[in-house]
């Protein structure tokens, strides 16, 4: 038996073929491309709006509510469009896109019937779930980078680039600003992990992709609304969106880490809790679709 087992000559690396296939399948879906297209359009809109608004004269601080102190600086430095665009898309557009992709991950396969063929291939339930989770996280990163790169391109096109001033008032070089922008994009992508895990769990509960997507996006909106109600103050620190805008702290000098680490810890907690729940549900489930 063990001798024959050795003769199987499979490679542990082959297991990654599913991840590659999953990435290709996800990013070739028309819906995924449409979501990324919408995300790429947001910085264009913001950039053009700022350009038109300030065509008459220099901006007088305190602009859009979402990006604290960022939007007013765009006309001085296009790099600030990256921060503004991320601040504008993080509350809704980015998590909504992630919710759609995560919610559809397993429920969509069940809906199409392809899930049963993946499982008899046999993909293995844990392996398939991990692959789906990894792919959704890859999508979080891709979506965030699409916003950031689009914003950088628009910013460079419409506004001057150069050294910039941090929130704390110190000057940093353009290169360092660019490095911080990349770091911020990574933190924003990591901020979406909680929604990703939640969406994946919802996805194991139903055989309808649409229902899973709608539920995930609905939960997102609910949490955002509850986050505005002061009477629920005690609960707010447990909402996945509570520390989202802490990424702005990366633009302080020195960087203010407390909320950033709290945010990452909270996202890890969501990933652990809902990842485990998704695993328990998916590995014990009868696949009848």
């Amino acid at each position: 038996m063990s001798q024959a087992e050795a003769a199987r000559r499979t490679s542990p690396l082959w297991t990654l073929g599913l991840f590659r296939s999953e990435l290709l399948t996800t990013f070739r879906r028309w819906r995924t491309l449409a979501l990324l297209g919408v995300l790429a359009a947001v910085p264009v809109l913001v950039g053009v709006a700022v350009e038109i608004e300030t065509g008459d004269g220099p901006a007088a601080g305190g602009g859009g509510g979402a990006g604290p102190a960022f939007i007013s600086q765009i006309t001085n430095n296009g790099l600030f469009l990256v921060f503004t665009a991320l601040a504008a898309t993080l509350p809704f557009f980015l998590p909504m896109a992630v919710g759609v992709v995560a919610g559809d991950a397993l429920a969509g396969e069940a809906n199409a019937g392809t899930l049963r063929y993946l499982l008899v291939a046999p993909a293995g339930r844990t392996r398939l779930l991990l692959t789906k989770f990894a792919t959704v996280i890859a999508f979080c990163l891709a979506a965030t980078l699409v916003v950031a790169v689009s914003a950088l391109a628009v910013g460079a096109l419409l506004f001057p680039l150069g050294d910039l001033t941090t929130i704390s008032g110190t000057r940093i070089s353009f290169a360092e600003g660019l490095a911080r922008a990349l770091l911020i994009a990574l933190v924003v992508a990591a901020s979406l992990i909680g929604v990703a895990a939640l969406g994946l769990f919802v996805s194991t509960l139903t055989d309808s992709g649409i229902a899973a997507m709608a539920t995930t996006v609905g939960l997102l909106i609910t949490v955002q609304i509850l986050g505005q109600i002061p009477q629920l103050d005690a609960l707010h620190p447990y909402f996945f969106s509570h520390y989202w805008l802490s990424f702005a702290d990366l633009m302080r000098e020195p960087v203010y880490w407390e909320d950033l680490t709290r945010n990452l810890g909270l996202q890890a907690l969501y990933a652990a809790v809902f990842g485990s729940a998704a695993w328990a549900r998916f590995t014990g489930k009868d696949i009848t679709a």
Binding site: T10, W14, S21, T25, R29, A112, A121, P122
Partner: peptide
């Protein structure tokens, strides 16, 4: 196995469907 009729990814070609199902099998070279 063919269970309760075929299930395919409509937006992928026939060949890409098979490539995907084959990739799901960790023992497939």
């Amino acid at each position: 196995a063919l269970i309760e009729g075929p299930a395919l990814y409509g937006f992928l070609s026939g060949r890409d469907n098979l490539l995907r199902y084959d990739a799901a099998d960790p023992t497939a070279d």
